[in-house]
Write a protein that binds this DNA or RNA. Structure first.
Lengths: 142, 142
DNA sequence: CATATTATTGAATAATATTCGAATAATATT
DNA sequence: AATATTATTCGAATATTATTCAATAATATG
């Protein structure tokens, strides 16, 4: 038995999806070529970045989710984008954004459970430039 | 000139997208019917909820983004799901989750700018059951 | 107001998803 | 271990859908 499901999920998290022009056309009651025209326009001006699957994370072994706030050392504070790029590379990091105020960066992290989360957290804390962190978590059931 | 772009964006935020089976098949080097089989399986067991567009929010007039933490009154604390349902109905609320710990609920809110955000915040604070809030925000450019 | 650019759409075509069926493989049952 | 049942794999046929193209209309620009 081939087990391509993990590969599949990985791809569908990144993209590999596309708009359903015919369905949208029917819904808005416009010709599908018109819908096509507008969608391509949004894509061209990169207002639309990609199309992705939305999962029931509890069912794909990523039921634990945490928002991790990071404060940078004053040295790293000069270039938070660089650290952001590195943190985005973790496959468990779903999103990474630069905040205004008390905390510098917020990460959204998904793992199987809290233990796995702490494993990831340990690696993040080891990153050059990270001064301190705090987090808020929740669990997706079903 | 028709302006169907706002309608289009609204639909693509909810769903109205679909996986690209042929592209995935080529990438994983498996027959497209096999990919189809696995995707339908994931959909049937509702591991995949839907497929959505990912936007460059700065370009669709939603450049301001905030994570809003909510603490419930002891009365509302008994049934946070109910409030969660109500808060999810705001079109500016992108996600709503129930936290463990100090704060009860986290909302991700997207608006055009900070003024618009405060308008939404005012409505949320007026909701029965909300005791206090705090938030962290950022801006998506380009 | 003349011209250029952008928007709109039907018809034709190309690409893609889906269904079907049959073969095989995995798993469960006696 | 034999048999039955269920799940997987995948090619061929079909149904749907996206895309291209070309013609027209609307709008913007000088």
């Amino acid at each position: 038995m081939k087990n391509i499901t993990p590969k599949l999920i990985k791809l569908l998290k990144e993209g590999y999806c596309t708009p359903q022009i015919a369905k949208i056309a029917k819904k808005i009651k416009e010709p599908s070529t018109t819908i096509h025209y507008y969608i391509k326009k949004l894509e061209k001006e990169s207002a639309i970045k990609t199309y992705k699957a939305v999962f029931n994370y509890g069912k794909i072994n990523e039921g634990f989710c945490a928002y991790l706030f990071i404060k940078l050392t004053s040295k790293a504070g000069a270039d938070p984008d660089k650290l952001l790029g590195e943190l985005s590379r973790y496959e468990e990091v779903e999103s990474a954004d630069i905040l205004a105020g008390e905390w510098d960066i917020i990460l959204k992290i998904r793992t199987k459970n809290q233990d796995e989360y702490y494993r990831v957290l340990k690696n993040i804390l080891a990153q050059e430039g990270v001064e301190k962190t705090t987090f808020f978590h929740f669990t997706e059931t079903s």
